[in-house]
Design a protein around this nucleic acid. Structure first.
Length: 214
DNA sequence: TACCAGGTCCTCG
DNA sequence: CGAGGACATGGT
């Protein structure tokens, strides 16, 4: 079966997935401290990609809500939080010490190199951006690709455990992340929206069928 | 009570 | 390289 056909079937079965962004862009930007930027939807997406590592999204959503209420959804605001405070805010997402370290290092990198503006990563080629992200501690292939696809809106196909299971179901098995990624990217048009929707659908479908497979 | 969730890093052979 | 363990909370 064609890969695109599988996509069409999943879309028909589950409908469009609404993943990111979580909060709406404009209204939230004028907080009380006029001129103080405390919310960045693109950074929020990247942050969510880190927090969701091996963690149910529902728990991540709580952590993000805590950060939102603390008006801490920019790299600079993350760095301003005392470590203990940051740990307590993201505790629901699990691995809270590890993830606190990841968020701090990632935020510091963005502030130091990109003036705290994650969208500046778009200046590089897709592969250069990927290498730069992978060089950051705590960011592996799936997280890097999620950031590129959902925060920077650039076409790269995200591979996760659900994707591998889906492949296996159709008799497609590889060893490495990059091999799976090449497979999908060679079978599909390089379309950001398609890649975003497909990955989300694979996750949703994978969750639903969890007990049936193996 | 176990096992799992939108992974990654570290260590050891 | 590749396997195995650590990291942590909340849901079923």
């Amino acid at each position: 079966m064609r890969v695109k056909t599988i996509y069409n079937k999943l879309l028909k079965k589950h409908g469009p997935q609404k993943w990111w962004p979580l909060h709406k862009f404009p209204s939230t930007l004028q907080g009380e401290g006029a001129g103080v930027r405390w919310y960045d939807p693109y950074f929020e997406i990247a942050l969510g990609a880190i927090l969701t590592q091996n963690t149910a999204w529902k728990n991540v959503a709580k952590a993000i809500e805590n950060l939102y209420n603390a008006k801490a959804l920019t790299p600079a605001r993350i760095l301003k939080l005392p470590t203990r405070k940051l740990q307590s805010l993201i505790r629901p997402a699990g691995y809270f010490r590890q993830k606190t370290k990841k968020l701090r290092l990632f935020s510091k990198w963005l502030v130091d190199k990109f003036d705290g503006d994650i969208t500046q990563l778009k200046r590089y080629t897709l592969q250069d951006t990927r290498y730069k992200l992978l060089a950051q501690w705590g960011i592996g292939p799936e997280t890097a690709d999620s950031i590129i696809l959902y925060a920077l809106n650039k076409p790269i196909f995200v591979i996760d455990e659900y994707t591998r299971r889906l492949c296996k179901k159709y008799g497609v098995v590889y060893n490495t992340y990059d091999e799976y990624q090449k497979f999908f990217e060679s079978k599909l048009p390089r379309d950001t929206k398609l890649f975003q929707e497909f990955h989300a659908l694979i996750v949703t479908d994978g969750k639903n069928n969890r007990t049936i497979e193996q």
